[in-house]
Nucleic acid binder design. Structure first.
Lengths: 173, 173
DNA sequence: AGTCTGGGCTAACAACGTTAGCCTTGTCAA
DNA sequence: TTGACAAGGCTAACGTTGTTAGCCCAGACT
């Protein structure tokens, strides 16, 4: 995250750090507050509740994804392939944030307008604008990622091969 | 779930009911206990902690999935298509249980041996034994399901079409 | 000079998972 | 028949969590 300037940004930044190195259970209001040297109830001067703080983390995740995916696609000879690599890479580098972003219904009303779309745009472009194909590709990527993060594949599974097989199939359309 | 006979089965059954109609937050040790007329601490005579109770719910989910998928595939002219339909159907009929089963690392050590494999077998058969293809298909199904349950597709999205597109692509392999 | 307001604080609450320790009931051995 | 023991209830309580109420201080503006 970029230099936190406002107190609100400091809080988000502290929560992101905590999420990254202690997992979702580590992100308690008291722990977040402590990390910036205040007490838990003071957080409520900046966020109405924990849900909105979490949504702010999710928004930051989307911002990062949008940036990473955009640069992954631009000028690539194989946009879908590059995107797939970038997707898996980002998710495995931010496993807890990725899960937070995807595992429950999104409070879209609390998210900046257009943010979600801007993270999705590179993919829509990469598949040539076919929305059904884009959704299938997204689902494939999310499914592979989610199953990998949840340790669902056996230890001897060749996850790269599963990605290649799936992407190649969709690419042929 | 079949007729709960032992106390342990009663507990699992009560927890499943609670999960289905009050969601994950509704499944508290106190609420589960109350539903069968006992107090929360008594649950600990049957399960060492809430984690193991949850794993018992997950095991029941796998049992149901294995049964449903097996009958969906057998004798079908289009095994993969039937399986896809059955998968989506089961998940949307048991959204909370589905999420519980998939959203975090699995305590395999607490699961009956072979149970996970028996739920996966119909799929492996349906794709002709290619493990990479099976994993891609599983990921596609899980991704589509998970995104649908988390309300990730816009209201005007044609989710059926996304399923058809994805499955057709994999089928062509 | 007086008045807001932003943003900290302490104390406290209810709900949660969990533990300690007690008591009753039925089974079975001596 | 009696006594031991295990299974399975119970109450009381603890620490942690999100959250609220209510107080207070500092700076900005009228």
């Amino acid at each position: 995250m970029a230099e936190p300037r406002t107190r609100r940004e400091q809080i988000v930044s502290a929560a992101l750090d905590l999420l990254a190195d202690a997992g979702p259970d580590g992100v308690t209001m008291r722990a977040v507050a402590a990390r910036i040297g205040i007490k838990a109830p003071s957080l409520y001067k900046h966020f109405p509740d924990k849900d909105e703080l979490e949504t702010a983390l999710i928004a930051e995740g989307f911002r990062q994804m949008a940036a990473v995916f955009t640069t992954a696609v631009e000028g690539s000879p194989d946009p879908l392939g590059s995107l797939a690599t970038a997707y898996r890479r980002w998710a495995t580098e931010h496993p807890h944030l990725y899960r937070l972003m995807t595992h429950k219904p999104l409070r879209r009303d609390l998210l900046p307008e257009g943010l979600e779309a801007s993270a999705a745009l590179p993919l829509v472009r990469a598949v040539g604008g076919n929305p059904d194909l884009a959704r299938a590709a997204w689902a494939l990527a999310h499914g592979l990622t989610s199953l990998e993060l949840a340790n669902r594949f056996p230890p001897d599974a060749d996850i790269d091969a599963a990605w290649r097989t799936g992407i190649a199939a969709l690419q042929a359309r």
